[in-house]
Nucleic acid binder design. Structure first.
Lengths: 150, 150
DNA sequence: TATTGTTATACTCTATAACTATA
DNA sequence: TATAGTTATAGAGTATAACAATA
């Protein structure tokens, strides 16, 4: 290679590399977008899933988000401690907890969603609606070939 | 939401979330692809850049790859210790090191490139050539709006 | 003064193994 | 036996601040 427009050589045509950089760029901008809320990408993901599926348990949330059971514990603790998520023993299976959003959690989710919408528009400023839809479709196809996370 | 085809609610239409999952899926598959080589995504990236720009210094590599100076130190040390990269004091600027691949580094890069090509084909099995090109183009546009990394 | 590389440090994310209590 | 949650731990990535040597 070695042309001035591509100083990264063999990395340039690798989807894996470009995904990594794009994802990192989104992560940085996400953090700015939700600054002051105490939310992070992972915590926000949990709020979104629990909002969509109230009564879900934390293992199931982890499987949906690709987070291992062991790593869910501290995340859920953090959300419970902040009063964003309620955790109640499942009467039908006393090993499990039923998760749901508190009022504070719902407010937090809405606040973040508003900010994240702006963040996504900012990151995709040069994208047409069709291009954004195409990107989502292509990314979705990559994930659907994923294996489960134990 | 709450339809069974989308159990993740508000996350589904977020490019940032889908990027994160796709990137993570690539990372796992990358690790399998280069198993036994001792390479990781970050180390491989350095080899690729140094190969493309022999004589580059480590600060410049970090800026190209989005890795902070402080975090480059251990990575370069690791590559030098494994005999993959040569580090020579720049005679024109004795603060800096000129980096270049050793023969072993060139071999490692080629080995990894071969495996990574297979890995990319595997991850993008359902993609047409045009779809892969489109994905790369869209991802590239996201990165080009990035700010610099200090 | 600014820059290159460095050390020290801390936080997040991720991964595994072993445990408990329930099923 | 298997599963839900937990604890402990370790590796990797990433962030900042402060320093020495050099420019």
């Amino acid at each position: 290679m070695q042309d001035d427009t591509n100083p990264i050589g063999a990395l340039a045509p690798l989807v894996g590399y470009q995904l990594r950089r794009a994802s990192a760029a989104f992560a940085v901008n996400f953090a700015h977008a939700v600054e002051g809320t105490g939310m992070r990408q992972g915590l926000f993901g949990i709020l979104a899933v629990v909002s969509d599926q109230p009564g879900i348990n934390q293992g199931a949330v982890g499987r949906l988000l690709g987070v291992k059971r062991a790593n869910m514990v501290a995340l859920i603790n953090e959300l419970v401690d902040r009063g964003l998520i309620a955790r109640d023993v499942d009467p039908n299976d006393r090993r499990a907890f039923l998760l749901s959003l508190t009022d504070g959690g719902r407010t937090m989710l809405q606040t973040c969603l508003t900010r994240i919408d702006a963040h996504e528009r900012e990151m995709l400023a040069g994208f047409s609606f069709a291009e954004r839809a195409m990107l989502l479709e292509l990314l979705g196809r990559i994930e659907r070939r994923e294996t489960s996370t134990g």
